[in-house]
Amino acid sequence: MRIIVPIKQVPNTNDVKIDPKTGTLIREGVDSIVNPEDLNAIEAALELRERLGGEVIALSMGPPQAADALKEVVAMGADEAYLLTDRALAGADTLATAYCLSRAITKLGDFDLIVCGRQAIDGDTAQVGPQMAEFLKVPQVTYACKLDVVEDSVVVERHLEDGFETVKARMPALVTVMREANRPRYPSMAGIRRACTEDVVHRWVATDFDAEPWRIGFDGSPTWVKRTFTPPPKAPGKRLEGTPRDVAKDLLKTFTEKNLL
């Protein structure tokens, strides 16, 4: 099995505060982390490798410091890591990002499976995975909460709003996984040692993966951001007060009025 896991370095939104004047995120002094669901993707890939053999290759596009995110997943057990880092790549939207990642994957050669996190916590688009599958012309299965490899196919349990669905796809294929898929392992001493002492992160500029200049970076990004804003806080809910008996009565009345019962 040759498994590729694209990951993203994101600001730790648990720490992020919003500037009350501008309404934008204050990123200063905020730690960078590996996007949480990408850790689930790494875990899924490592489990498959442990069972079936092969290698797990982590891939990221970002500024030079995104190498830290790749080192972290190497410390968890990924075999190799590639960082696409180049000024020409800056300002990419999801389409340009997916294009670059898929070019790099093509350059890396044959693969069996691409495992991505469902979405990144800073953009929440969930687009890059599916777009990559389109560029690479491989089947895609999104929202996986369980995955397994059976012969030449990947069998995925998808978590949908109203239930589960099991899908079988012939490999090579792309799967996006959700938080529920597994519990990501902790980095080990041996892993940390390897990540810090060996040259584990290979850096590629745009020409290294034969990207067409017009499709990358800001110029290759057709997305126009009209405005970013924090949605106004929801009006506070209605509070029922009184004795438990009164509250229960009021609640029942409200339910009946709204035809909920």
């Binding site: 080192k71 972290e72 410390a75 902790y186 980095p187 940390i192 040692r193 990540a195 810090c196 002492t197």
Partner: peptide
């Protein structure tokens, strides 16, 4: 701290 020390500290914190 070195990168390695920071990673160990972080891994230990996370686990703990």
């Amino acid at each position: 701290l070195t990168n390695e020390q920071k990673m160990i500290q972080e891994a230990a914190r996370d686990f703990a």
